[in-house]
Nucleic acid binder design. Structure first.
Lengths: 130, 130
DNA sequence: CTTGACCTTGACACAATGGGAAGGTTTATT
DNA sequence: AATAAACCTTCCCATTGTGTCAAGGTCAAG
């Protein structure tokens, strides 16, 4: 099947399919005589795998490792779990950092009248708070 | 003072100071005869403001608006609060999306033995879960 | 035989930051 | 005074992952 159909069936945009191929995440698709890429169901499975991994926030690099483990029948689940745990840890840290921002911002915001007057604890917080 | 000192006093890297100037977030600094930028305390205040706003996750664009409100004595705190609330909302959405990733990942990970065997619910989750 | 829907590659853009090169200036040490 | 170290300048390139757009090739249906 051609790239448009592969895109529909996998949820990965045609642009991204070409991109993943160009950076070596995907082995280059077969080509028809007219140079059009030709995907089979195995390609679709891989693309779906990538799509789901992306939606769980894995980086392209991590996905590369996951795919190679996925294809390797000799793999140890330890390796997969390690990548996943690292990623979870990473996500949690980012969540925490953002939550701290939210806390600070809400603290500032709740003291701000939010009316026509110029007095604003938010701006004060941004300028004084060292 | 020169850019290195301004960087130290504000916490913004020299690289970023030049960048902020180039995109118009900062009004271009004074120049010495030798072409070196020359910052005064007013510049430092602005840089600190930017630094704190960045550390709270505001985008450059939002910071541009905040700075112009900060400088405007006729501002309404309503506008500042609106920008802040929008940003908080944005952060919360991103946190929620990431938290959902974490939940899914932890669910998969806790079922994975993480040993020498190849069986791996994580990979299965990534390949089957449509 | 034209129209429209595909496909191809390539270039450029985003946001915010870092790295480095090539070259000029100032400051400190010999 | 000479030299070395530590600055400064501009300009270019890389990052991550995605989108947009252009110029052109291919194919099927009308």
């Amino acid at each position: 099947m051609r790239i448009g159909e592969a895109s529909k069936q996998s949820g990965v945009s045609a642009k991204m399919i070409r991109y993943y191929e160009s950076i070596g995440l995907l082995t280059p698709a077969q080509r028809h005589t007219n140079d059009y890429r030709d995907f089979d169901m195995s390609d679709i499975h891989t693309l779906r795998f990538i799509h789901r991994a992306r939606s769980l926030g894995f980086s392209i690099e991590e996905i590369g490792k996951l795919i190679s483990l996925w294809r390797n029948r000799e793999r140890s689940s330890r390796e997969v779990k390690a990548i996943t745990e690292t990623h979870i840890h990473d996500l949690k840290q980012r969540i925490q950092a953002m939550q701290e921002m939210v806390d600070t911002l809400e603290h500032l915001s709740c003291h701000c009248h939010g009316d026509d007057r110029p007095d604003c604890p938010i701006l004060e917080g941004l300028s004084n708070h060292s």
